Amino acid sequence: MRTRNSYFPNNSNVTIPRRRNKGRAPNIVEPELRTIVAPMAERTMEELLRAPTEGYGEAIVLPEINADHFEIKTNLLQLVQANPFYGRESENPHAHINSFKRITSTLRFRNVPNDVIKLMMFPYSLEGAAKTWYEKEPPNSILTWEDLVTKFVNQFFPPSKTTHLKNEISRFTQKFKETFSEAWERFKELLRACPHHGFTELTQVDTFYNGLNKNEQDSLNAAAGGNLLSKTTREALNIIENKSKVRYSRNRSNVSRMNATSSKTDERIDKLADQLSTLVEIVSKKVSHSRSG
């Protein structure tokens, strides 16, 4: 029968560890690891620098450019920034888009579509409320130039404004004491203020003609040799433009004649004043001479 000591040699210095009582061993529970995110105000600078950056990307997604050594020069950006759009009530986003397109249409880079250039440069043309609007747009939400124009126009030229201006155009009426030239310029200004009005040139001519007073309608019909609305759209527009220019040139001629007449009158008054001054001086000398004698 093997004894306990037979496992070890005689005079062994091995210390036999005391046998542990498994029944009394404590149950050790590993602590659950949780990530506690402190509020932004309570985070340290180091934590903020390590904060995730998801959701802070650009709104515009630029397509890949298969061109070598392509970059937008600083002077081109400055050209775009020279006339920025602020998003004010008095500003017209359509006018800004047209101006921006005129500038960027002159830029040509090999293997770089013009729409890509416009997408890259457009954010640099915004300031104030317009820049804030763009920075708040969701990341990767603008994929094409059409997307950008649609969002930009809807933000700063809402449908309600479009409806108002279209009503102003369709209800156009010549004002009291408003000349033909003034009425035509006001009508064209309404069209420019809402370039997406949708009215054809034929509708524009018809609307303007019917908004004039009876005398101006008769004058247009006489210039057309009959009924203005029986002419082609292009012929009718030419007649309206010519009538506007003739009236304007006549008014300007009248003003020029009035200014010329006024100038001649002033010259006569100046000559009479000089003559009177000379006469007074001669009389003064004679009186002085007679007294001294």
Rank of each mutant, 00 (worst) to 15 (best):
E47G: 07
L49N: 08
F85L: 08
H69P: 00
K73L: 14
L76S: 03
L62F: 12
N66P: 00
Y56R: 00
I97F: 01
A38F: 12
L48K: 12
E58I: 03
G55R: 07
R102I: 06
V61K: 12
P93M: 14
G87L: 13
A59Q: 08
Y86T: 07
A95V: 00
I60D: 12
Q81L: 05
L77P: 00
P84G: 04
A82G: 03
I72G: 10
N98H: 11
A59H: 09
Q81W: 05
T74G: 10
S90K: 12
E58M: 10
I36D: 05
M45L: 15
K101N: 11
I103S: 13
V37P: 00
T74D: 15
A67T: 04
E89Q: 12
G87Q: 01
S90W: 09
H69C: 04
E89F: 09
I72R: 14
A67V: 00
P93G: 12
G57M: 01
H96Y: 10
Q78S: 07
A95H: 05
I72P: 11
R88I: 00
H96P: 00
R43P: 06
G57I: 03
A51K: 08
E64I: 09
A59G: 05
L48C: 11
P39Y: 05
F70V: 07
L76E: 12
E47T: 07
I36P: 03
P93E: 08
L62G: 05
Y86H: 14
A95N: 02
T44Q: 04
S99A: 15
G87R: 02
H94R: 00
E58H: 11
I60C: 02
E46H: 13
T44S: 15
M40Y: 10
A59W: 10
V61N: 13
R88A: 06
E64H: 14
G57H: 01
T53N: 13
N98T: 12
F85S: 05
I97D: 01
G87F: 07
F100E: 07
L49S: 06
K73I: 11
H96R: 04
E89C: 02
L77F: 05
G87H: 03
A59M: 09
L49F: 05
F70G: 02
N66D: 08
F70N: 01
I60Y: 03
H96I: 06
K101E: 15
E46L: 05
N98R: 11
E64D: 12
E64S: 15
E46Q: 09
D68V: 15
L48M: 11
K73E: 15
M45Y: 06
K73F: 15
N83C: 07
A38I: 02
